[in-house]
Amino acid sequence: MKLSCAIALAVAAAFAAAGCAAPPPPPPTTTTPITSTPATLSILGYSDGQEVALVEGAQGGFHVWMQWAVANLAPATVTLERTAHRVSDGAVVLVYRGDVDVGAPGDDGSWSAPSPIPMFMCPSPIGIGVIDVPIDYTLRLLGDGDVELARADITLIPECPDDQRDFCTRICTG
C-alpha cells in the first residue's frame, strides 16, 4: 500500500516537474489516510552547548567541522544552507549555500554526508568575535523554491586551538 502511494506521488511529482497537468486522481482504493514522514536532519558528533576547538583551515582560517545526516529524504540534489549566528546578539557570522547530492539511505534509513563540512568561522566578520561565546549553527536542506525540507540547529562554543591560539585569537575576534 505504501509503495503504491509512493508511486502515485512520484508520478504526480514527475508531471508537476515536467510542467504538465497532473492526470485525474485515480479512484481511492483504500480509506487509509496518506501520511508522509518528514525528512529529519541531524548534526552528528556534538551535543548542544558543547565547547569545540576550531580546526585550522589551510588558507589561514579556522572552522567548525560538522558531520550531518538526513533521514526520510529521497535521493536528490538539494540546497544545503549553513548559517551561524552569535547567540548574544544574533549577529550574522556565516550564511552559505551550496548544492549537495543526497544519496540513497542506508540500512538505518538515513544518508550521511561523505565528509564533514566546514562552518567557516574565521577570519570572522568585522566586529564579531566568535571565540568562547555561544554560536547557533543551523543546517537547512532546501528544495525547489527554497522550500525547507529539513533543519537542524545546535549551539556550540568555539575555542581556539592551543597551538594556534595567538593567531586564532587575532583573526577570530572581529
Partner: peptide, 9 residues
C-alpha cells in the same frame, strides 16, 4: 595583515 574572504549577501 588580513586575508580577505568573500561571501555572498
Amino acid at each position: 595583515t588580513i586575508d580577505p574572504v568573500f561571501s555572498t549577501n
